[in-house]
Simulated scan of single mutants.
Amino acid sequence: MVEFANKGFEIITGYTPTEVIGRKPSVLKSGKNDDVFYRDLWRHLTDQVFEELKLREQASHDSLADIDDFKPVNDRFGHQRGDDIIKTVANILLAETRKTDKCIRWGGEEFIVLLPFCGLARVRAR
């Protein structure tokens, strides 16, 4: 049974998800295309699934960092001092990550650290 179909599937096959989900894959054999088309279609779709799985693995160990209790710092010492602290934290993150990692400021005092190709054991070790 076909369990999932997205917009890419629709573009490639011409079938909408509602036309195929819950039906047997043989529904795709409309007689309009030859066996080579279906072989290539299958190869393309499975390649896409494996690429998505690789991307999910790459992103599975990304992290979100937040400076705790930051608002009182801004309130007490001013936004310039707060900006200095944010820059210091950013520099520490950059110094402690690999060149392939990405450190991104995400909001006021939050950072996202992207760690491609980094297993959980290695993340914990850092």
Rank of each mutant, 00 (worst) to 15 (best):
S26A: 13
I11N: 06
V49E: 07
D40V: 15
S26M: 09
D35F: 05
D35G: 10
G14K: 10
K29G: 02
F50Q: 05
K32A: 12
R23W: 00
E10S: 10
I12M: 07
Q48H: 08
R43D: 01
D40R: 15
Y38V: 14
L41P: 12
F9G: 08
K7E: 14
N33Q: 14
L41W: 10
W42C: 07
D34T: 03
Q48R: 07
I12P: 04
G8Q: 09
E52L: 01
F50G: 01
E10D: 11
F37G: 00
V20H: 02
I12H: 06
E19T: 11
E10W: 04
T16I: 04
T16M: 03
N6V: 09
R23N: 04
K7P: 00
R39L: 14
I21C: 05
D34H: 02
R23T: 00
D35Y: 08
I12F: 04
N33M: 13
V36T: 09
V27R: 14
N6D: 12
N6H: 06
Y15G: 10
H44V: 12
W42D: 05
F50N: 06
G8K: 07
R43F: 00
T13I: 10
N33C: 11
T46M: 15
E19F: 09
E52R: 04
E19K: 13
T16L: 04
V49Y: 01
G31C: 11
P17C: 07
K29S: 04
I11Y: 10
G14A: 15
T16G: 03
I12T: 14
R39E: 11
I11H: 08
R23A: 02
L41N: 09
G8E: 08
L28V: 06
T46V: 13
K7Q: 12
T46A: 15
V36W: 06
S26R: 13
R23K: 01
V36S: 13
R43A: 02
K32G: 05
D34W: 01
D35T: 12
N33S: 13
P25M: 02
T13A: 06
R39G: 09
N6E: 04
G14S: 15
L41V: 13
E52P: 00
T18P: 00
H44C: 03
K32L: 12
Y38T: 14
T16A: 06
I21F: 02
R23S: 04
F9L: 06
E10C: 06
D34L: 05
E52H: 04
S30G: 09
Y15C: 12
W42R: 03
L28I: 05
G22F: 07
K24L: 13
T16W: 01
K32I: 12
D34K: 01
S30C: 09
D47I: 01
I21M: 03
I12S: 10
K24A: 09
L45G: 05
E10M: 08
G22T: 12
Y38N: 11
R39D: 05
E19H: 11
Y15D: 02
T13P: 05
V27F: 14
L45N: 04
T46N: 15
T18A: 00
E52A: 00
F9N: 05
K24N: 12
V27H: 13
N33T: 10
K32S: 09
L28C: 10
E19Q: 15
P17T: 08
R43H: 02
E52W: 02
G31P: 01
E52V: 01
N6A: 07
T13N: 06
L45I: 11
